[in-house]
Amino acid sequence: MTMKVQDDAPVGALLKRWRERRRLTQMQLALDTEVSARHLSFVETGRSRPTPNMIDRLAASLEVPLRERNELFLAAGYAPQYLERDLRSPELHAIADAFRVLLDAHMPHPALVLDRWWNVVDRNAATDLLLAGCADHLLEPPVNAVRLSLHPDGLAPRIRNLGQWRSFLLGQVRHRFERTADPQLGELLEEAGRYPGPDAERAAPRDVVVPLRLSVGDEELSFFSIAASVVSAMDVTVDDLHIEAFYPADATTAAAFTGSGMDPGCSRTDGSRG
């Protein structure tokens, strides 16, 4: 399952892999990027070295993430064109603050900032209610949301529709792995796929989204999630991040959180226990 991306292949071979992964012909990509099919063929076979501008144009059309775009530049003999800063760096303060505003504004409902590997970068205080009973070894940084959800020492025993949720979550990891060919995602997919769990259940007729039905105390709470990312990212770190915000899927869940009396203050974790 694991696919190696960062290797010694020339840039033309890597671009060809991305084109084939997107199921495009040379002619389709040439038309999309206003590059001649002949020149694109020369690039893919190594007869022509693409300029940084052409690499960026082709990568943008192929929806190559910034992390992998830097690999293309390196393979062509150029320096990486996109910086990868720490989220705590001064240049990313505005982004970090915006994420924090969204996390706080989402109270009293759970929300997390996740990186491309589903590691928890930050979260709000409402997520504490969801993590009760999870084993300590799963809450050591970096906390991984997929592992925490599907591991038998994590949320899995409390997820009422585990087969349905497991199928959905593994499908999300598989989709991102297929889109990026990131080997870490391939490893996560293999690991999480080995955790015990029932087969996918049929959706209930009333469901309009895949819900997360979770036992909390004597109640069953039901959520659906909405993901948001910075679509204009020009930094690798920012490009990798997204917010996963959970909303009540029924009146019982809405009432449980509205009446929880939780303080909508900050619960900053940076991937660790908050």
Rank of each mutant, 00 (worst) to 15 (best):
M1N: 06
M3Y: 09
K4S: 13
Q6M: 14
Q6P: 06
Q6S: 15
A9E: 10
V11R: 02
L14P: 03
L15S: 01
R19V: 01
E20H: 09
E20F: 02
E20K: 13
R21D: 08
T25N: 02
T25D: 02
Q26Y: 02
Q26G: 14
M27V: 14
Q28W: 00
Q28S: 03
A30P: 04
E34V: 14
S36A: 00
H39V: 00
V43C: 00
G46W: 04
T51W: 04
L66M: 03
R67E: 08
R67Y: 03
N70T: 06
E71K: 13
E71R: 13
L72Y: 04
L72R: 05
Y78H: 14
P80T: 08
Q81K: 13
Q81T: 15
L83N: 12
E84P: 01
D86I: 03
S89I: 00
S89H: 05
P90G: 03
P90T: 02
A96W: 12
A96Q: 10
A98H: 14
F99P: 00
V101H: 12
D104G: 10
D104V: 14
A105N: 07
H106W: 15
H106F: 13
P108I: 12
P108G: 10
P108Y: 08
H109G: 05
A111W: 13
R116Y: 04
W117A: 08
N119A: 02
V120K: 04
R123D: 10
A126I: 13
A126R: 09
D128C: 09
L131F: 11
L131A: 07
A135F: 03
H137E: 15
L138N: 05
P141Y: 07
N144C: 07
P152D: 04
G154T: 06
G154I: 06
A156R: 11
P157W: 00
R158S: 09
R158I: 01
I159N: 01
L162W: 00
W165E: 15
F168Y: 15
F168Q: 09
L169F: 11
L170P: 07
L170E: 10
V173R: 07
V173T: 06
R174W: 07
R176P: 00
R176Y: 04
F177K: 02
R179M: 12
L185P: 06
L188G: 03
L189P: 04
E190L: 14
E190Y: 10
E191H: 06
A192W: 14
A192H: 15
G193Q: 04
R194S: 13
P196V: 04
G197M: 03
G197C: 05
G197T: 05
D199L: 15
A200E: 14
R202A: 08
A204I: 05
A204E: 14
A204R: 15
P205E: 03
D207I: 00
V208P: 00
V210L: 08
P211V: 03
L212P: 01
R213N: 04
L214T: 06
L221R: 07
F224A: 02
S225L: 09
A227W: 05
V231N: 08
S232Q: 11
S232P: 02
S232M: 08
V238K: 06
E244R: 07
A251T: 10
A251D: 09
A254Q: 11
A256W: 11
F257S: 09
G259D: 15
G259V: 05
S260N: 14
G261K: 11
G261F: 09
M262R: 11
M262H: 13
S267Q: 14
R268D: 13
G274A: 10
